[in-house]
Each structure stands twice: as C-alpha cells, then as structure tokens.
Amino acid sequence: MSDALLLFDLLLALAVVAIAAAALLVRDAFAMIVLFVVFGLLSALAWVRLAAPDVALAEAAIGTGLTGALLLKTLHHLRARGMAGWQPGAVAQRPVPRAVAWLNAGLALAVMAGLGVAILGSPLRVTGLEIAVAEAMPLSGVENPVTAVLLNFRAYDTLMEVVVLLSAVIVVWQIERGAGPAPAPSLGPVWQGFARLTLPAAALVGVYVLWAGAEAPGGAFQGGAMLAAIGLMMLLTGLYRPHPDHRGLARLLFVLGTVAFAATALLVAGGGRASFEYPPSYAKTLILLIEALVTISIAVTLTALFHGREPVALKGDLRHDP
C-alpha cells in the first residue's frame, strides 16, 4: 500500500473527527447542518476507502441526505414559528453548569480512550463470516453478497428494519396529529420547472439502483432513498400536495413492504422448511418481488417522514385536541 494513500487516509480521518466536533460546537444552527452534511459525505468517502461502497451509498443517501433534509425542515419550522431569531440554545430546558459539562466531556473521553486501549490490546483480524457467506452465495438467488445478507441470510433483520420505518411514520403522525398546517418550506417556480425536467430521470436512476442491487452496489434501501428524493422534490416544488383523501392510499403504501415481506416469510415455511427459507429455485424471483415492494414502501415512508404531519382536514383550531 502506497504512502500517499495512507496519508490520504490519515487526513480524511482527521477531517471526519474535526468536522464532527465543529458541527456540535458551531453557534449557528444552519451552519451546524451544513457541517453535518459535509461530515456525512466524508464518512461515506472513508467507507469507500474501507471497501464498503454499498454502505457508503446508503450513508450518503439516507444517513446524510435525508437526515440533512429532515434537520433543515425542522430548523425551518422552528424559525418560522414565532422565533424569528431562533438561536442555538434558545429552547434549552435548563442550563447545564460548566463543571458538569466538563465532567461529561472528560467522561466521554475516558470511556472512548479505555475502549481504544482495550481493543488495540487484543488480537484483531479474526475471520468474520465471509467464508460462510461465500459458501452460501450460490443458494441465495442473488450475486451481490450484501444483498444476499440483507434479503436472504438475515432477511428477518431486514423485515424488522422495514417495521422500524413503519413504526417511525406511525409515531410521527401520532405526534403531529392536530398540529396546525406546517409552514411548508417551498422552492420557487424556477425549481418547479427544473424538477419537471429532472424528476423522470431521477426516477429511472432510482429504479436502476434497485435493479443493480442484485449484482452491484445498490438495493432496496438505496433505491428507495433515491425515489424518496423525488418525493421530496415534488413536495418542495408543490408538484404534489398531500390531501386528506390520500391518507388511505398512503397507509396502504406504508405497510405494503412489511406485509409482503412477512407474508412471504410465513408462506414459504412448511414441508421441512423454516420461516424465511426461500426455495433456491424461486429465491431470485421472491427476493426481487420483495425488494420491489419494499422499495415502494421505503420511498413513500421516507417522503412522509419528511412531510411530517398526517394530512388531515383542519376544522378550526384542533391544536389542543385531547
């Protein structure tokens, strides 16, 4: 390995740590979010260096892109509601004494240093599960090992992950029920035209990423995130306005992935097969089917998480409904 690359790794690692600290310390909330996005993208770059392109794609699209959009939306909301000069710390519950803050910092530092020493002082480089994965790949029905883990070997985990997303949207709808119409952030007419032009292309990319997931980096979550980005654009440009009548359909789309995934898991069982045990000859078909439906659910759910409030008809002031 060349020294130049090692130097690059060192600088990148330093930048990641420094920007993480800066994001927490910078005073302006908008700058905080910008720094966070930079941090996320640099982390994704580091993960590419560690030979994890699938994860880097997911972190960039979901962990950084969508999280950043959510943070911006919330900041917009807080600033639009009354507190025009909203400053970091303005909504603090009670001030933390300086001594306590330092104590916390020391504590966090000590814990991490202790962990570092404990880990470095013991043998690293055990063999993980790569051999077991490689041996089982021919039976998995897909060619990309990460997709095989996500949708076959550990399909149960992935089902539950889709359930976590579903739980999140239910919780968000529950929390913001009866809230007044949100001060929706919006983009101007220029963007609207731009969106009309680019959205079909973006949709194609999303579908491609999903399809490519069977062989190359990509898959349901990254594809879903791409499609969700389209959803965000449509919300922001006003091309789509959530309407109370759409709630039933939205609910159906939220649960589609969960239901298809769980039902398949149960239906393939029997005749000596366990739950989630796809017959090898149908594995590819089943996985692609599940992935497609899960992608739709993920895209719609992520878009709904960005929109927040359940689109209900507001009759007068419902802000205090019990």
């Binding site: 550990r154 985990d157 992950e161 929390i175 019990p322």
Partner: peptide
C-alpha cells in the same frame, strides 16, 4: 437482531408515552 428489536420497542414506547399530547 436484539439491537433492531429494542429500537422497535423504543419507537413504539415513545409513541405510547406521548399519546396524551
């Protein structure tokens, strides 16, 4: 898997905590 499960529990429990609004 336990990590994923405790996150489902956490989200649902938070939803139940703030049910009263």
């Amino acid at each position: 898997n336990l990590y994923v499960m405790i996150e489902i529990i956490a989200l649902a429990a938070v939803g139940l905590t703030v049910l009263g609004g």
